[in-house]
Design a protein around this nucleic acid. Structure first.
Lengths: 240, 240
DNA sequence: CGCTATTTTGACAGCCGTCAATGAACGTGG
DNA sequence: CCACGTTCATTGACGGCTGTCAAAATAGCG
């Protein structure tokens, strides 16, 4: 059996170290369970930024979780319009760990360099069914996805560009907060204008305008691959 | 024990008769199971049109399914803007049949007069866990909700008003089709302009304009509480 | 240091929102 | 069967948020 160096995730990521331990995020799966899960892991894959991880309509027997890096789910319309359905951060599951192997109706692309953990759907589903609180943990996972989706619907349906962007920043901040990845309100922010636009139903040009305003209003600060929240209150007022 | 008359659903709806048998929609729960489910049913509630079935943030120990009539999930912003998250048709579950009793983050309102079946969340979850294929059936249910949500995101993010409405009509048609509720491409359609607007991120006035165009283009026909698809191909081209 | 990707800026257009008035449909009661 | 109130749909004028297009500036990267 190969030796594993816990401190070097790049060599062989450990589920125990996983930033947000996908199924443990809500305390439902105990620490020791993550070692059980690790035994089920088939493979660790590394994918370069901008590479496609999964293409729409292709079979998806595997269940992936994101160990490190950012990715996003999206769909393309015939004429090239792109809708980003959600961003995947470290710890996020990609798709659902179901017994069946449905052809996902969305594609997934790496946004930064990415490390994935690969599981067999059926095997993982069986395991979660056998572990105490395994299903509750899964359920929590479903509920969270469900709620996030509804939240995004409100953004796109009933909020202005400025409000959407405020809400979006707060959402990202919240997700990163749970991972201890925020220092002085500064978060890692690898998104381009085009990504934000395609997620929020806007154009990159207009996203640029609005971000510019938020910076001018001293509500946020933008750096190279980073974003700092200067006026948290103002953002919350915008996002309501 | 009270006698039940299968032929009179208004008196005491039978799960066997349920239009779309929520968990059977995908063939996962066999016919005989629906009798098992019926034993778990706590109550049958009737609600008048426009009444609130569930209010945001209030505890929701019960799990409802819609036996008859239409309803919708929605959320209100502080200033009164409303986003309709989804429409609930006969057979639709309201929320998720989880073990926990989360406070749903959305409200539910009856659109027409409605008949609800009420279950205890935990009890139903246990039952589905014990029945062969019970979980697969639940999973199918999750996947379907997940996909429908993603579809709506594409509508709101990347489609014009005309395209959204076309896509929306086709979605409703598809859902009703599975229930044998379409005659000559004419579907029951109790929605007001305001409902469509709040679901698709538009204003009632503009929805009216676009529907007017679709009628003028002989793509659809509108009647009192009914909608007829005249040019199915044109709708699909619009919705892509 | 040159190339590419990305951002910024400005002018302009258009889709859709807003507002307000009119009209149609419906349920109810006399 | 008609009068009345309520709800909903329609219409037109107008405005604005956001999209489109193109060019210039900047940043990133080998």
């Amino acid at each position: 059996m190969a030796r594993r160096d816990k401190s070097d995730a790049r060599a062989q990521p450990s589920c125990v170290d996983c930033t947000a331990r996908t199924f443990a995020a809500y305390g439902a799966v105990a620490f020791r369970e993550s070692q059980g899960i690790q035994r089920l892991r088939r493979e660790v894959r590394r994918v370069k930024a901008k590479r496609i991880i999964h293409r729409e309509r292709e079979a998806l027997d595997a269940f992936y979780t994101l160990f490190d890096g950012w990715a996003f789910r999206f769909r393309l319309l015939d004429d090239g319009r792109r809708q980003i359905l959600s961003f995947l951060l470290p710890g996020s599951p990609i798709g659902l760990p179901l017994r069946g192997s449905p052809r996902a109706h969305f594609s997934v692309q790496a946004l930064t360099d990415v490390t994935l953990c690969v599981f067999d759907r059926a095997e993982l589903a069986d395991y979660l069914g056998s572990v105490s609180k395994g299903w509750s943990s899964l359920e929590a996972c479903y509920v969270r996805l469900y709620e996030a989706n509804d939240e995004r619907l409100i953004d796109l349906g009933r909020r202005s560009a400025r409000e959407r962007i405020a809400s979006f920043i707060l959402e990202l901040r919240g997700r990163l907060l749970g991972q201890g990845k925020i220092v002085n309100e500064t978060i890692y922010f690898p998104l381009k204008r085009q990504h934000i636009a395609d997620a929020l139903g806007l154009t990159p040009v207009h996203v640029g305008r609005v971000l510019g305003q938020l910076v001018a209003d001293k509500i946020i600060e933008l750096g190279r691959d980073s974003l700092t929240v200067l006026d948290h209150r103002a953002l919350e007022d915008l996002a309501r």
